[in-house]
């Protein structure tokens, strides 16, 4: 999973929303438990904000350069599918947005 080390190159911030106990968030929780260590070790300076809130839809949020954000709902997905979604967020990062600075 070579793309994982590129996470902090394309993303500015990664947010994972999930419910503490909900069934819909179960796979997301497992994903976090299994992958957080690897993701953080490979990208020590990338904020991986895990935000728990009861009853919310599990969701993956990626923030790119200049405040551009994308999100993918995760309910119904299995753990490998979540991994694939994350890869998708990394590989399809928006490119070439010109900075507004002179």
């Amino acid at each position: 999973m070579a793309w994982r080390s590129k996470l902090s190159q394309s993303l500015r911030e990664l947010r994972i929303h999930m419910c503490q106990t909900g069934v819909a968030s179960k796979a997301t929780r497992e994903f976090v438990v299994k992958n957080y260590k690897d993701l953080k070790t490979q990208n020590p300076r990338l904020p991986i904000l895990i935000r728990e809130c009861s009853g919310i839809q599990p969701r993956l949020w990626a923030r790119y350069d200049y405040g551009v954000e994308r999100s993918i709902p995760l309910d119904g997905l299995s753990e490998p599918e979540i991994n694939a979604k994350l890869e998708e967020l990394v590989t399809t990062a928006p490119k070439g947005k010109t900075p507004i600075h002179a």
Partner: peptide
């Protein structure tokens, strides 16, 4: 941060197991 939308409520935080921490 969805928990900031839940006024007057406490959203508990679940700790990750030791093995999952870098």
């Amino acid at each position: 941060a969805p928990n900031l939308f839940r006024v007057d409520e406490l959203e508990p935080a679940t700790p990750l197991p030791k093995e999952s921490l870098p």
